[in-house]
Structures are given as C-alpha cells and as structure tokens.
Computed example of a mutant assay.
Amino acid sequence: MTQPIKPFDVVALTGDLPERGLLTGQVGTVVESLGKDVFEVEFIDDEGRTYALTAIGADRLLVLRYDLAQAASG
C-alpha cells in the first residue's frame, strides 16, 4: 500500500514533461494539492531559484523517502 502524496513531500518525475522542460528523475517539492491526485510541484535549482512550478498528476510522481521503511511482507 502506498502512502498518499501530501504537501512538502519531496518527489521525482517518473517521465519527461517536455512541454515544461522537465526530465525524468528531476526532483521537486509538493507545495499544494490541487484536487484528487493532482499536485502543484516546485522545482528549485542549487541557488534556491524556482525554475518550474507546475501541476502534475500523482501517476507521474515518485515520493522520495529519507527514513528507514520496512518492506511490505507478501
């Protein structure tokens, strides 16, 4: 079972968004939930400048985890 995406989650793109100049694997932060499974994601460079702020569907995002998590037992 996956946890729902929520504001302030760090996410990575699972596919290119060429219309926005974004590539698979780029990392952003969820800043707002816009509706069921649609999120406003902010992408920031190493200098802290926003280079993209766009709505993205949950199916195109992977939540990055920084803590120890147990694998689901099957």
Score class of each variant (00 low, 15 high):
35 G>N: 02
23 L>E: 13
60 R>H: 12
1 M>D: 09
59 D>Y: 03
28 G>F: 05
2 T>D: 12
11 V>N: 12
8 F>S: 12
43 F>Y: 02
61 L>Q: 06
41 V>W: 01
7 P>Q: 01
34 L>N: 09
15 G>N: 09
51 Y>S: 03
15 G>W: 06
37 D>R: 15
14 T>A: 08
1 M>G: 12
2 T>P: 14
39 F>H: 14
29 T>R: 15
43 F>D: 03
70 Q>F: 03
60 R>L: 13
9 D>P: 03
70 Q>V: 01
33 S>N: 07
33 S>I: 04
50 T>R: 15
29 T>M: 15
70 Q>K: 03
51 Y>E: 10
44 I>M: 11
8 F>V: 04
64 L>Y: 09
42 E>N: 07
60 R>Q: 14
32 E>S: 13
60 R>K: 15
56 I>W: 10
50 T>P: 05
43 F>R: 05
16 D>W: 01
19 E>P: 01
54 T>K: 03
63 V>W: 02
24 T>L: 13
25 G>I: 07
7 P>D: 08
1 M>H: 08
24 T>R: 14
72 A>V: 03
56 I>D: 11
37 D>W: 03
71 A>K: 04
37 D>Q: 13
22 L>M: 05
6 K>P: 05
45 D>E: 06
20 R>Q: 14
8 F>T: 14
22 L>A: 01
69 A>I: 11
35 G>H: 06
69 A>S: 10
44 I>H: 02
57 G>Y: 04
55 A>E: 13
32 E>F: 04
45 D>G: 06
28 G>C: 00
47 E>T: 14
45 D>L: 00
36 K>C: 07
67 D>I: 03
31 V>A: 10
50 T>M: 13
26 Q>H: 15
30 V>F: 01
52 A>Q: 11
37 D>C: 04
18 P>L: 08
1 M>R: 11
52 A>H: 06
61 L>G: 07
40 E>F: 09
50 T>W: 04
64 L>P: 05
19 E>W: 07
73 S>L: 02
6 K>W: 02
8 F>D: 09
61 L>K: 07
25 G>R: 13
